[in-house]
């Protein structure tokens, strides 16, 4: 149970302000989720140089671990500490980097990976975390953020959203699934592994699993409606694409606002109130059971 905020920038002039706008949206939703928060930003050159890969982990706190990753990778890595998150960067593939992180620091929870998206998360209030992440100073093409009120899983950083389980695929969720344990078992039988006991991670893994099998993002989300039961507003991003899906009953809130310069999704109007030009934006609520996508 949570607050959701997502912003995709269409006007390149707005890119430097992406982080500041997203931080404002997120902090306005802190009442919906005071337990934890997280964010993923796409194409922020300071966080991730173009062409590089990253794997972000909850900082394991052991001093020599970056060297161990480099040794396992057999290539240079660069670690950037961002609040409670450490972003491991290299010029290799994400798969190679993720494998090396796993081998070298198996105790570190991996929270995100990709060549465009960097995921940052932690426990506590959104205002404290966005400050720790330095979100105000970050730019980018799109971002997705979440404030969490834990329902049936633990209040730990690994249970924070976004769930980024495949390259540049990030998911945030407001609601609760009522059959996630069964979907989790099914995915496990297909070899999918999980990092948390969180129901939202199951949706992220399901979408990743389907896309790996050849589904488009839209097709994978359409399958979610048939497979998952319960209440959900999902916002999912891939490199260049932002998608929204609400369950067929659609109890959990969602508002979309769209201008020529940006498209934003949030749990509530108050998250949108400070966006530039929101007064003249096209504003609507996503219909139940329908997949919406926007491509930058």
């Amino acid at each position: 149970m949570c607050g959701i905020a997502a912003l995709q920038v269409r006007d390149p002039a707005l890119r430097p302000r992406l982080g500041a706008l997203l931080a404002g949206m997120t902090c306005r939703l802190v009442d919906r989720g005071p337990d934890a928060a997280g964010v993923a930003v796409y194409d922020e050159p300071g966080l991730l140089p173009a062409g590089w890969s990253n794997v972000s982990v909850l900082d394991p706190g052991r001093p020599d671990w970056p060297d161990a990753v480099a040794a396992a990778l057999g290539a240079e890595v660069d670690v950037r500490h961002v609040g409670p998150t450490a972003v491991v960067r290299s010029r290799t593939t994400t798969a190679a980097l993720a494998g090396a992180v796993r081998t070298a620091v198996p105790e570190a929870t991996r929270i995100g990976r990709g060549r465009h998206a960097v995921t940052l998360k932690g426990v506590g209030l959104a205002a404290d975390l966005t400050e720790a992440f330095g979100l105000d100073a970050l730019g980018g093409t799109q971002g997705i953020a979440h404030t969490r009120m834990a329902t049936e899983s633990a209040v730990v950083a690994s249970g924070s959203h976004p769930f980024s389980v495949d390259d540049d695929l990030c998911l945030v969720h407001n609601g609760s699934f009522s059959n996630h344990a069964t979907v989790r078992r099914t995915l496990r039988r297909h070899g999918v592994e999980f990092d948390s006991d969180n129901d939202s991670e199951v949706a992220a893994r399901f979408i990743g699993h389907r896309m790996a099998a050849g589904d488009t993002l839209t097709e994978a989300l359409e399958r979610v409606v048939g497979v998952f039961d319960g209440f959900y507003t999902l916002v999912v991003t891939t490199a260049g694409t932002l998608a929204v899906l609400r369950d067929p009953i659609a109890c959990k809130p969602a508002v979309v606002a769209e201008t020529a310069a940006w498209v934003a999704v949030a749990s509530e109007y108050r998250a949108l109130a400070e966006l530039p030009g929101v007064e003249t934006a096209r504003i609507f609520e996503p219909e139940p059971g329908r997949v919406y996508t926007w491509t930058s």
């Binding site: 306005r28 509530e268 109007y269 108050r270 998250a271 949108l272 109130a273 400070e274």
Partner: peptide, 8 residues
Amino acid sequence: VVNPAGAH
């Protein structure tokens, strides 16, 4: 009332 900014 001015500047409600989506207040509840």
